[in-house]
Design a protein around this nucleic acid. Structure first.
Length: 270
DNA sequence: ATAATAACCTGAGGGC
DNA sequence: TGCCCTCAGGTTATTA
């Protein structure tokens, strides 16, 4: 389900319901996610949630005793529902709150994760080595150009490497490369400084627009209130292989890069 | 150290 | 209807 925009939309949707509320109960129906949900997650009970933050595609529910680290994987969804709402298939975890609401995690594929850390979550092993946030000034053309100098790999799969920059998944890597007019097969090291500037700009633009549209709903993403995201209407290439380029009309082509489907316009992207 | 790939898991959709 | 195949928004672990 989620790339950065979908996780940020989820964060914005759940935060008003969670912040300041005391956790009254944590119900774990199935602890078998990517890693087993640790028993320490019960330390949330009795604590008020101080903030709901996001780092990369991780959500951080911070309390006085520690932080719950939540990742939605490929198919995870968060909903805020009244306590007592019957659980359905793949509803693995509920975090019940003093206001009578609960935060419910549904994740059919169970690639997601719910972990606990009592220390600084940014120093947690999963978060410590991540690259910069794409929507901050730390991610700019000069940074991308410097990092790309002796990178022989193709630009598209490299953009999805969290050690370079976080939050750019398959949809938005395809969309940003189209917007920047760059062939996804180009070697990263072949990009000029101007091309790096352009690509960074388009990554920021597409992510910001997707957040404003409530994310991209393909099959199962919904916001915390169950509404879909509307960015799917603005997709230029993702999911459109064989259809006409919206800019030049040439049929879009697809190929596999690193076990992911790339879609691009061979005419507009050079 | 770097780069490709295999793996984790369920469900949907297409072809036969 | 059912079986088998491919594909899906992510990330880590393993292999070359």
């Amino acid at each position: 389900m989620p790339e950065l925009p979908e996780v940020e939309v989820s964060r914005q949707g759940i935060a008003p319901w969670l912040v300041g509320q005391t956790v009254t109960r944590v119900v774990v129906r199935n602890p078998r996610l990517r890693w087993p949900i640790p028993a320490e997650i019960q330390q949330l009970v009795g604590c008020p949630i101080a903030s709901v933050q996001r780092r990369a595609k991780y959500l951080l529910l911070r309390s006085t005793l520690g932080t719950a680290i939540l990742h939605l994987g490929m198919s995870g969804k968060l909903r805020v529902l009244p306590v007592g709402t019957p659980a359905e298939k793949h509803d693995h975890v509920d975090i019940e709150l003093g206001n009578g609401q609960l935060l419910r995690l549904n994740d059919p594929r169970r690639f997601g994760a719910l972990l606990w850390t009592s220390g600084d979550p940014l120093h947690h092993g999963l978060l410590a080595t991540l690259g910069p946030e794409p929507l901050t000034d730390a991610f700019d053309g000069a940074y991308l150009h410097q990092r790309s100098r002796r990178k022989h790999s193709a630009i598209k799969p490299w953009l999805m490497d969290n050690h370079l920059v976080v939050g750019v998944g398959n949809i938005y890597a395809n969309e940003a490369l189209f917007a920047a007019g760059i062939d996804p097969r180009r070697a990263a090291s072949a990009l000029s400084p101007d091309e790096c500037d352009r690509l960074v700009l388009e990554i920021k633009t597409v992510l910001e627009r997707a957040i404003r549209q409530g994310g991209t709903t393909l099959r199962d993403f919904t916001r915390a209130d169950g509404r879909p995201g509307y960015f799917v209407q603005e997709l230029q290439v993702y999911g459109r292989a064989g259809e006409g380029c919206r800019r030049c009309g040439h049929p879009l082509e697809s190929l596999r890069q690193g076990q992911r489907t790339t879609v691009f316009c061979p005419h507009c992207q050079r």
